[in-house]
């Protein structure tokens, strides 16, 4: 799992690290949106210029990012091969039964590979430079407009931040339970599928029971500390939209406009 950098946070102090999580999330969405509009070499070139600008500003090494793509390699190869063999249109180079390699098929396969790379790399940059907590804050802030339709934004935000806070705690606990069950003779991860599924039971049941007890305790502690319904609360953490966020947004919007001008 150590190689799997997709979705992890690496502490740092770059331009992108210090950006507001809201702008980072919005810009990532905007970038993915842009990718789907790119349809010729020039526009893909532009997309990758923007991507490399982001990588540079985040001070992440390209090699490190590419290594992080490894676990997704099979998915990419699979998708590209399907495009190569089932793509239609243009000059036919090779064909056998329903499989054929055509000029247009090859080009669309190449474009799909580029899309994959760009999307995964940009979202990896987002998670590498943003703490889970900041992402939770960002989601809360971005969902605020939904309050108009009585969507419980505060409740969702609290649930999200509690869930994130308890991920490592529950991981530790799962590990402890596994070790305890191993000490009592449970053999995890061996035998046939049926056997393996059975061994999960002595892990899952205590984990769930503990989670219930924990939830009860936390609810009591929150009550005792004056938490009522999430309304009329002030916030300790604050998201500040800085100049760097405005500048980054301008660059993205500008490249978006150029993309629309140069696409076919």
């Amino acid at each position: 799992m150590d190689k799997f950098i997709f979705g992890r946070y690496i502490p740092g102090d770059s331009w992108v690290h210090r950006m507001d999580p809201r702008s980072k999330m919005l810009l990532s969405f905007f970038f993915i949106f842009m990718i789907f509009f790119a349809n010729n070499l020039l526009s893909y070139g532009l997309v990758f210029v923007v991507l490399f600008l982001a990588i540079m500003m985040a001070r992440v090494s390209v090699g490190f990012l590419l290594k992080g793509l490894k676990p997704l390699l099979w998915l990419m190869v699979f998708t590209v091969l399907i495009q190569v063999f089932f793509g239609a249109g243009g000059e036919v180079y090779w064909s056998w039964w329903t499989l054929q390699i055509t000029h247009d098929g090859l080009i669309s396969a190449a474009f799909i590979l580029l899309r994959f790379l760009a999307i995964i790399m940009m979202s990896t940059i987002l998670t590498l430079t943003t703490k889970p907590l900041q992402i939770a804050d960002g989601v809360e802030s971005l969902l605020k407009p939904l309050k108009v339709i009585h969507f419980p934004v505060e409740t969702l935000a609290l649930m999200l931040s509690l869930a994130l806070r308890f991920v490592p705690t529950l991981m530790d606990e799962a590990q402890k339970i596994m070790d305890a069950q191993r000490a009592r003779g449970v053999d995890f991860g061996s035998g046939g599928i049926k056997q393996q599924v059975k061994t999960v039971v002595p892990l899952l049941i205590p984990l769930f029971m503990n989670a219930f007890n924990r939830a009860e305790d936390i609810a009591t502690a929150m009550d005792a500390r004056g938490y009522r319904d999430g309304k009329n609360r002030t916030k300790y953490r604050e998201l500040i939209w800085q100049r760097r966020d405005t500048i980054s947004s301008l660059i993205f919007v500008l490249s978006g406009i150029i993309l629309f001008l140069i696409r076919n």
Partner: peptide, 14 residues
């Protein structure tokens, strides 16, 4: 109020 279990009353992320 301070409860018994240090883990189960820590609400904040930091």
């Amino acid at each position: 109020l301070v409860f018994q279990n240090p883990d189960n009353q820590f609400v904040g992320a930091t």
